[in-house]
Design a protein around this nucleic acid. Structure first.
Length: 572
RNA sequence: GCACCCAUAGCUCAGCUGGAUAGAGCGUCGCCCUCCGAAGGCGAAGGCCUCAGGUUCGAAUCCUGAUGGGUGCGCCA
């Protein structure tokens, strides 16, 4: 159920009726007609821009259309009053029964807010994709939370979602990992490890060294690299992925699919992807111009195999082969996305760190070329997280050992707090994360504020149970403060659709904050006005009054569910 | 040099893809507990939406340019 959508249908039907009467010309496009909450609640419960949008194509004055449409709308039993205001807005006030009906729906249907907007379309959301060379750090954390919440949001909006992780296990960095692990293996065998510059020095590889010793004993010690590197690499990356999966699990993130970059090599998949592009005339041998204004010292013109990404919106064509003939990192990326296209996704979403902004155009170009523009590819860039401790910037340094991992953050702040805070900012805005502030129990901490609202409802329900109140789904309320809360509940399905359409899960976090705010306001009105308290002397009246806060809890719970946050029963 | 992202109250940020008098928290000032959780609530003050043009009934939002900040730019993934 979506009240705004219902009323929009009413508006469209009314416009159709006016068209049939000859008031409006035939063939008008109603696509831009919107029904939204008015900016000022004093204007009414809902407003439509229909008259203004249609004025030009209908060659009529907005006010004239508005008057006619208003008269038509007024005949509907759900409409209490209709006003024409400003340049041609139509403000609607709904009868009370609509609001109590809404609350009843929230309580009696299992999945209020779920949308069929996605129509079962297949969407692949790729996120995290951290290199399997070490533990995940704070930067990965935000991407993980964002991608996971976005996936849940799309699922909630009716898409068929796949959560996917691309394992970068095909490049030079996993060879470095293997060599680093081998040194720890030597260490485990009582030798001095030689961790050279550029290798991974972290202690997290020591257990890997021990495990290698347990598996191979001393057998690999005096053998040349060619003989051990494949096995050690595979062993080490497996161990790293175990660690990363555990890190993700601590955040509540579970993937549907892990896709290995390595699986693209030696299997003909890269070649097949490039042949696909070649068949479209998008592969050629050529020489790139040096970037203007910043020519590298060692620049020399070289002929390379290039992808004509400029044909699909990129700024320059991109190399897919190095001068020695081996693939660039971009080649397997193309193959990977070709694989996604072939798996039949209607939409592909990649979640990257902001430092990968330079790859957006070429990736989109690749998907566009490989799918003939049929698959929508959206790339979300995640900005940095700035860490604070007590308001002071928290400097990170691998060398000083103050390198903050995902695990550190989750252990200190908790899964729920971490997730919620990471979603209180747009993905393309930097985020401040203060270890002390996020745990503060006050209204300037949005996590607490929303959880507190939910806990208050639970508290009421506990009290009601003590008093032997039998719950009822039939509400009873009519105060403006109560209707304000109901109005906010009505907005939930709409916010879900807006957020899903824009791939913007942060909207859900802000929505929940607003809902909590309206609820806290209502709660406090009960201090002065006993009629607004949820628990009354009469048990039946209590049951009817408790319906509204219960509906609030249902929606908070559903919204937090999208964000991957567990609602709190009580605050401690 | 080029590309992408950003610029909104003193601070941190929203602003529902072009709508009405631009919102919230913090901070400042003033109120509200004998009462379901005051860990809350109500109110006041605070704005040339970086600047200059353009598009139209209407712009914080779209287009162009400028300024300031961030990121990236062929054998690193």
């Amino acid at each position: 159920m979506n009240l705004f959508a219902d009323i929009r249908v009413l508006v469209i039907d009314s416009l159709a009726a006016l068209t049939a009467e000859g008031v409006l010309p035939e063939g008008l496009d109603f696509a831009n007609v919107a029904v939204e909450p008015p900016r000022d609640p004093l204007h009414g419960d809902m407003a439509t821009n229909a008259a203004m949008v249609l004025a030009k194509p209908a060659k009529a004055k907005p006010r004239d259309i508005a008057e006619k449409l208003a008269a038509q709308l007024a005949t509907d039993p759900r409409i209490e009053t209709v006003d024409v205001a400003g340049p041609g807005f139509i403000n609607l006030r709904l009868v009370q029964g609509v609001w109590s009906g809404l609350v009843e729906t929230v309580l009696s249907t299992e999945n209020y807010g779920r949308s069929t907007m996605g129509a079962g379309k297949k969407i692949n959301v790729e996120y995290v994709s951290a290199n399997p060379t070490g533990p995940m750090h704070v930067g990965h954390t935000r991407g993980a939370v964002f991608g996971d919440a976005l996936a849940s949001l799309l699922d909630f909006a009716g898409f068929d979602v796949t959560r996917e992780y691309y394992i970068n296990d095909g490049g030079a960095q996993v060879d470095v990992l293997a060599r680093s692990a081998f040194e720890r293996y030597r260490e485990a065998n009582g030798l001095n490890p030689e961790i050279a510059e550029g290798m991974y020095p972290g202690d997290y590889l020591k257990p890997v060294g021990e495990a290698l010793k347990a598996k191979y004993g001393e057998r690999l010690l005096n053998t040349p690299e060619e003989q051990w590197i494949d096995e050690v690499r595979e062993f080490a990356t497996d161990e790293m992925m175990k660690m990363i999966r555990a890190d993700l699990a601590s955040l509540g993130v579970t993937m549907d699919n892990f896709f290995s970059e390595k699986s693209l090599y030696g299997t003909g998949l890269i070649e097949a992807a490039l042949k696909e592009l070649d068949d479209k005339g998008l592969i050629y041998e050529g020489v790139l111009e040096p970037p203007k204004g910043k020519t590298p010292e060692d620049w020399e013109p070289r002929e390379q195999t290039l992808f004509k990404s400029t044909a699909h919106g990129d700024d320059v064509d991109r190399p897919v082969k190095k001068s020695d003939g081996s693939w660039t990192y971009f080649a397997p990326d193309i193959a990977y996305h070709y694989d996604k296209v072939k798996r039949g996704y209607d939409g592909i979403i990649d979640v990257f760190g902001a430092d990968h902004g330079g790859y957006v155009k070429r990736m989109k170009a690749a998907v566009s070329a490989l799918s003939d523009g049929k698959v929508d590819c959206d790339i979300k860039l995640i900005q940095l997280v700035k860490l604070f401790k007590n308001g002071e910037p928290f400097k990170m340094s691998k060398r000083a050992g103050t390198f903050v991992t995902l695990r550190d953050v989750v252990e200190q702040a908790g899964k729920d707090v971490t997730r919620f805070i990471m979603l209180t900012r747009k993905n393309d805005a930097p985020l401040d994360f203060d270890f002390d502030k996020v745990l503060e129990q006050s209204k300037d901490n949005p996590v607490f504020y929303v959880q507190y609202a939910h806990a208050r409802v639970c508290s009421v329900l506990r009290k009601a149970a003590e008093q032997g109140v039998t719950l009822s789904d039939t509400p009873k309320f009519d105060d403006p403060a109560e209707i304000a809360v109901a109005r906010k509940l009505a907005d939930f399905p709409r916010q879900v659709e807006i957020a899903a359409k824009g791939h913007e899960p942060h909207r859900i976090a802000f929505y929940l904050y607003e809902l909590a705010s309206d609820f806290h306001a209502l709660w406090n009105k009960g201090n002065e006005n006993e009629a607004l308290r949820f628990l009354q002397d009469d048990a039946d009246l209590s049951a009817a009054k408790i319906a509204l806060p219960r509906a609030v809890a249902v929606v908070i719970s559903a919204g937090l569910g999208i964000l991957g946050v567990t609602p709190a029963e009580e605050m401690r």
